[in-house]
Structure formats: structure tokens, C-alpha cells
Design a protein around this nucleic acid. Structure first.
Lengths: 234, 234
DNA sequence: GCTCAATTTTATGTCGACAAATAAAATACA
DNA sequence: TGTATTTTATTTGTCGACATAAAATTGAGC
């Protein structure tokens, strides 16, 4: 029975219910507070958040269409399992999105975009200095989301965000157990990518993003390889 | 007051309600039966499909997260407008997905995939011979969805399907008014792409898909150019 | 003691109703 | 007559309750 230590939910504005539930569940899923594959009880949730089941179901429908939960008809909804067998598809998609968003960001970024990208990079750097793995994972995702936003393409942005969320969950599987630290190179690689976006050099941004993606992919693959969960579908 | 000429909806199995509404609305939106930007009245829909508002709202949430409808808080839900201003983002995404799915399909396709791809191409060819523009648009989308399925990457498949649906809607804007016919080249280009997938030549599949995408993009651009709706957001 | 069937239980899918928020209509006022 | 303000009406967001489908439990038969 998990306690709910969020701001007093008793007084909420009309119409914000679904979004509230959506945010709560999304955070819990991405932070692995809710384990992949674990069932979500609508009634329990309704009681915990002190609201009716209707807004909760609507939030679940939305999460389902984003692939964060899976709905079994007439049976319980479960947190989306992590598919360790089809990991290559994830890596392919992540690499391509890194490349294309970096390339387009180099073309279309505004000063405002650069401000946000630099801010997220600063947060990431601080997390690395603190050796806070969980914070690193989260801020790394935000950094790449900022680049995706600068690319000015909602289709790519949507897919990128989905992949980054999925990746965040994947990394937590490993870093929540043994508190490790991400290799330093990532900070420098980010800096290089920023430089290419600032100077509006799409080809260079693409090249650097590719290298960066390869780095991360082999990193995750190494994590998976030294683990025996790889053949289990969580 | 649109009449509903679908199979008698009175007896439906439990749990199929949301999917039923989803399918009905989706079809109506993609076929432009529901005009972009037009409001969707939950109560009317509930009466027309003879069910309560709950499953209808859940279907709308799902459609919203797929970008087919837009929900204005505390106000009516509307069919997603077609954004003629940001069309380049759509073209970029479509081109990239054509390329990457063709490339991956050439690598990973099974015999079963080939069967489906050939079947869809046959349907497309028949539609072209009949000069049935609407059927062409639909079968063309299905052909590319079959390729996307063969690529064995759910992330790319999801984005591809979304873009193909959006494209279908876009084409209907033009072809529903003046019944034209798609240029013959498309049939041959499809055949070439199939050949590259059959012989498992990713580079060639990529090259052909790129050319095919460019063809379609310039086709749509021409349609838009000779129309004065381009600066209006439907 | 084990397997299968009937029964209970739990959780989902759907419904009708109420309350709040926005849009539309009606009224007052300059 | 045109504009601002109140009133009405429509429509959404949320609720509690009921019906139904699986799962869990119990009991019967071998």
C-alpha cells in the first residue's frame, strides 16, 4: 500500500482531473515506482487520488495509446513491460531520431531554443558532477527533448519524446540497483552537438549525433549483456 | 443530421464499445465525412450509436492522443484541422519514414510480409485501372503500411501509420472535389520498391523510396499550389 | 489426493444523473 | 441603436451504481 505524498489533492479545478492522473501515473511509470508488468487497479487508484474511476480510466486510455500501459480486455491494465528481446528496434529508432532532430535543430533553431538547450545541458552537467545517476538520466532526456523541440517537427518530436521516456525507464532498471555514474564523455559530446547547432551546421550535427547515439547504444548494450535479465520480459 | 447506415449496432459485446466508436470516428475523420475543424458533439454521437457518453469520451481521448481530434478544455472537441502552413514538417517525416521502412523491410521481410505487400499492391493497381481516386488513396496508404509492418519496428510503424492516415486525409481534400486520377508512375515505382525488398537490397530500396517520396511530395505541393486554400487553416 | 465443475468474488465496462463552465440569449443602459 | 450585463441554456467533467466477464474459491466425483 503505497503512501501518496503529493500536494493536497482535495481541491482541484474542474477539467484538470484527467491530466492530473495522467501526470501522476506517467511519473510513477517512468521512475519505475510502478514496476513494468505490474497491474494497475482502477479502484485503488481512485481511492488514493480521491476521485471517481471515470477520469482515471480516461488517463489510462491515453497512457495506453502512448504505449506506457497495456490494456487487456475485460482484465486489468498493466504497466507496459520492457521488451528486452526487441531492443534493436528501440536502438534503431533512437539513433535515427537523435540524428534527424539534431540536423533539423541546426537548421531551424531560434535563440530561445538555444537558451533552453543550454539550460538543460547545465542541469545535466550538475547531475554528472553530483554523480546522481537518476538525475542524470532524467536531465539527459530533457536535453534531447529540447533539441527535438528546436527541430520544429511535431512528428519527430512526438516519437523522440516517446523514445526518450522509454530509454529513461530502461536505464533506471540498471541504475536504481547499483548506483553507478554515467561516463564523462557524454557531457563533452553534448557540448559538441550544441556547438554544431549554434553554428547551424546540419551535417556536423548529424555526424556528432550519430556518434553520440552509438555511444549510448553500446553503453546500454553493455549493461544488458552483463545482466541475466536480458531474456526475461519484465 | 447524418444518417447511420452501419450494421445494426444494438447488440454488441461487452468491451467492444470504445473500439467501435473509435473505428467509426476514425473512418469518418479520415474519409472527411467529418470536416476538419468541425465540432464533435458527444451527446449526438451517443444517441446516434445508441450508447452512453462514457465509451465515446474514452474513444475521443484516444483519438486526441493520436492527433486526429483536438480537445479544447471545457469546450467542444473538434476534428483536427489540417495545417497547411506547417506542411514541410509533414513532408520531411513522410519521406524519412518511406526511406527507413523500405530499407528495414528489405532486411527483415518474411515471405508472409511479401504476400501482404503484393496483395495491397494488387488492390492499388486495380484502383488505378478503375480511375477510382478515393480507392487509390486508401490502397496506397495500405501498401505503405504493409511495408512498414515488414520493417519490424513498432516505433517506425506507429509514426508511419499516423503520417499515412494524415496524408490520406490531405489527398481527399483535393480528390473529393474534382475526381482526378493519380499518375501512372506510382504503380511502377511501387513495383520497383517491391523488387528491391524481395531481393533484400536495402540501399536500392532506400534510393527508390526516396525518389517515390519526392514524387508524391511534389505532387501534393502542386495540388496545394494551384489551390487558394493553402493559407487557410481548415 | 487430484481433476473438473459449480459458485463466489473481484474488477472492469457501461450507464444515467448531477454540477460546473462556457456559449447564447435576453435585458438594461447609455 | 449599439454596447455592457445579467440570465438562460447547452455541453462538458465527474460521480456513484449496476451489469457482466474473468479469476479465485469451493465442492463433488473418481
Amino acid at each position: 500500500m503505497t503512501e501518496d505524498h503529493r500536494p493536497a489533492t482535495n481541491e482541484r479545478k474542474r477539467g484538470s482531473g484527467v491530466k492530473f492522473v495522467y501526470d501522476v501515473l506517467r511519473d510513477d511509470i517512468l521512475d519505475l515506482v510502478l514496476a513494468p508488468g505490474s497491474p494497475i487497479d482502477e479502484i485503488q487508484l481512485a481511492e488514493r487520488l480521491s476521485m471517481s474511476r471515470t477520469p482515471i480510466r480516461e488517463a489510462l486510455v491515453r497512457l495506453a495509446s502512448e504505449g506506457l500501459v497495456a490494456t487487456l480486455p475485460n482484465r486489468s491494465t498493466v504497466v507496459a513491460p520492457i521488451d528486452f528481446l526487441n531492443m534493436q528496434a528501440f536502438f534503431d529508432a533512437l539513433t535515427l531520431m537523435y540524428r534527424v532532430t539534431a540536423r533539423l535543430a541546426a537548421q531551424y533553431r531560434t535563440e530561445q531554443n538555444l537558451d533552453l538547450i543550454r539550460a538543460e545541458q547545465a542541469r545535466f552537467t550538475r547531475a554528472v558532477e553530483k554523480h546522481d545517476a537518476l538525475e542524470m538520466i532524467a536531465t539527459n532526456a530533457e536535453f534531447h527533448k529540447a533539441i527535438a523541440a528546436a527541430a520544429r517537427n511535431p512528428y519527430f518530436a512526438t516519437l523522440s519524446n516517446r523514445l526518450l521516456d522509454e530509454g529513461r525507464r530502461l536505464m533506471r532498471v540498471y541504475y536504481s540497483s547499483f548506483a553507478d555514474h554515467l561516463p564523462q564523455p557524454y557531457v563533452l559530446e553534448h557540448e559538441d552537438i550544441i556547438a554544431a547547432i549554434v553554428t547551424q551546421d546540419p551535417a556536423e550535427a548529424d555526424r556528432l549525433a550519430t556518434a553520440h547515439a552509438n555511444q549510448i547504444v553500446s553503453h546500454i548494450k553493455a549493461l544488458i549483456a552483463r545482466d541475466d535479465r536480458m531474456h526475461v520480459t519484465l
